[in-house]
Design a protein around this nucleic acid. Structure first.
Lengths: 205, 205
DNA sequence: CCTGTTGTTGTACGATCGTCCAACAAGCTT
DNA sequence: AAGCTTGTTGGACGATCGTACAACAACAGG
């Protein structure tokens, strides 16, 4: 039998935004632990400590939850990178260096984070709405890079191309660092990226 | 119309290696069309024109088939890149340029090809055997790049790092080109990569 | 033509998937 | 204390998943 004399609530009601966030964070943990293939509605519900039906109640479907999780995780990463840049002080080049260095720090270059990206990427090709979300987030991340480069003296007409280049190099290093952690270190990745920045910022070009 | 009333074979027996390859190619087509989520045993069997049971007969499971497909597609890409390098003639720098240019050519930088990579990447973190396969293929691709760089005069002690850098830049550009085809062009990607090679090969560094 | 080998079929099976919705209960209002 | 709103439950549902296996048939060797 159940239910003793005293009464303990079987569940707690929390406000919609908080519940939504809890589901997103649970989704991120499941993706990190079990990968894209293991991120089912039921597994996420168990992780969040709620019933499976609640996922459908807050999200159109599991794809929408994955998209929201990607946006949230990318937001977290952006915040961490922004903090690293802010802590680097006023020198433009130091800020740029801090950006790339933080991109390979533990917790950012993390195989568990990669799972969220992969789950999201797997939806980009087939779902136009997801592709649009990717375009938007990518161009936002590129805009920040353009600003950092501009502060270092990169002329306006070269900012777009150089931001694409830096973004690609950092992402490529980040990807391999996650996929083959033993092949090279985060320090090496940072060195490579910073050396590349040298060639972009040097005036004799 | 021939061979009428008598008998038409319900299926053809072909030698194991050919059937294996047919299944791999069918898997690649399904991945390209439907993405990682749609690559089920049944869908692949339909695409190959065989019964579902045959997949289990030739592969341990669908993960093994995806891994074999990745190896096969990467082999195809490597062959295309090798041909581009060979057609570039004897000049080392021209060969290196041909390598990066071909990396962004249609059929290589292709959203449909990306699906195979994503399906494979999604298995890397969880499956040690798949991680080992990735390490091997990545180091092989890096070794080729080291050779091309060495021929251009990059000293031995810098080849490893520079190969990692070029590989990351090319892969990062390739990835974004597949995910957001409208953001920048293959020509721009090639320009960025070739300009990066300039900085690596110039002797005053 | 017959026979043996074996590549191939087709289905059955249990597990798990995403979605849905009527019923329930937590907690605020009155 | 009672009522009301609504966040939440939990199971039903059909579809689809990967796998296994006995029966079948294509084809080479006799």
């Amino acid at each position: 039998m159940k239910a003793p004399a005293s009464h303990q609530p079987a569940f707690r009601r929390i406000e919609p935004d908080a519940r939504r966030l809890a589901l997103i964070e649970a989704c991120a943990r499941v993706l990190a632990r079990a990968g894209a293939a293991g991120a089912s509605v039921r597994a996420i519900a168990v992780e969040a400590g709620v019933s499976p039906g609640l996922v459908s109640h807050y999200f159109t479907g599991i794809e929408a939850l994955v998209a929201a999780t990607y946006a949230h995780v990318e937001g977290t990463v952006d915040t961490a990178l922004d903090r690293a840049v802010a802590e680097a002080g006023p020198d433009p080049r130091a800020r740029l260096d801090a950006f790339v260095t933080a991109s390979f720090a533990p917790g950012i270059a993390d195989p568990q984070l990669l799972a969220t990206w992969i789950a999201f990427w797997s939806l980009v090709t087939a779902r136009p709405a997801i592709a649009a979300q990717h375009d938007e987030q990518y161009s936002g991340s590129r805009a920040r890079l353009e600003a950092l480069l501009g502060a270092c003296g990169v002329p306006t007409e070269r900012q777009r191309r150089d931001a694409i280049a830096v973004s690609a190099l950092v992402d490529g290093l980040w990807l391999e660092l996650c996929l083959s952690p033993g092949c090279f270190t985060a320090e090496e990745a940072g060195d490579i990226a910073r050396r590349f920045l040298d060639t972009l910022i040097s005036t004799d070009r």
